[in-house]
Design a protein around this nucleic acid. Structure first.
Lengths: 113, 113
DNA sequence: CCTCTATTTAACTGTTTAGTTGATTGGAGG
DNA sequence: CCTCCAATCAACTAAACAGTTAAATAGAGG
């Protein structure tokens, strides 16, 4: 799958949108939590100590861009990760971020010495 | 490198920050352009038809989070990608986005038929 | 020292968007 | 039909942030 270069405008917008959707602390936590499997809105709201409306909105946003899927069962709505690629994404970023923290720690140590 | 689960707050913030930094159309274009190699602020500003100040700010943001590096030479400042991981990230997201576009196209076709 | 050019910084504006509050929908069960 | 509960929707507020304009910094060369 060869990528066009330079990237066309509409693709650029879609790519940026997807990154922006993931670039929100609460949504990162939601994804981290959904890694364990599907959960309802209220379960997630309780687990992350946030309001139901807030969580519902975040989940909708992620469902809209195709990261999450929903399943209705009685009064409850179950959300789950359908784009498994986000795992690879998060791992990648986590790696870079941890590397950064490690470097920073070394710096702090060398100064404190 | 085992990731803690659930992710600690400060790590969540850093991860979200990094995604948010990339989640901006102009910065995606800059990264796409810098894939060809380092370039100066003014070169990038001209290539992307944007103001020098605007580009300078975007480049600073990406340098701050460790995605880009800078090199001074006379009056010019050359920026380059130092975190090669962003390539993998973008490819990953591009793949997902293109997949999404493909599905959408099929849908449009099936309706138009 | 003066000027020119490249880059950065600062202050301001408008837009986007996360979070809250309150109302609404819709299924489950008496 | 009425009530309860989960989830969503709608309107609002506040904070984050992209882009612009204008000023400041810094190196190159006369």
């Amino acid at each position: 799958m060869a990528l066009p270069h330079p990237l066309p405008d509409d693709l650029v917008e879609l790519i940026a949108r997807r990154f922006r959707v993931i670039g929100e602390p609460m949504r990162v936590r939601l994804l981290d939590r959904l890694r364990d499997g599907e959960a309802t809105v209220s379960e997630l709201a309780e687990a992350l100590a946030a309001s139901q409306q807030n969580i519902s909105k975040h989940l909708s946003v992620m469902a809209d861009v195709g990261i999450l899927g929903r399943r209705k069962e009685g009064n409850h709505v179950y959300y789950r990760i359908v784009d498994e690629g986000v795992f690879a994404l998060c791992d990648q970023v986590c790696g870079a971020v941890q590397e950064q923290l490690r470097t920073l720690n070394e710096l702090v140590e060398s100064v404190g010495r």
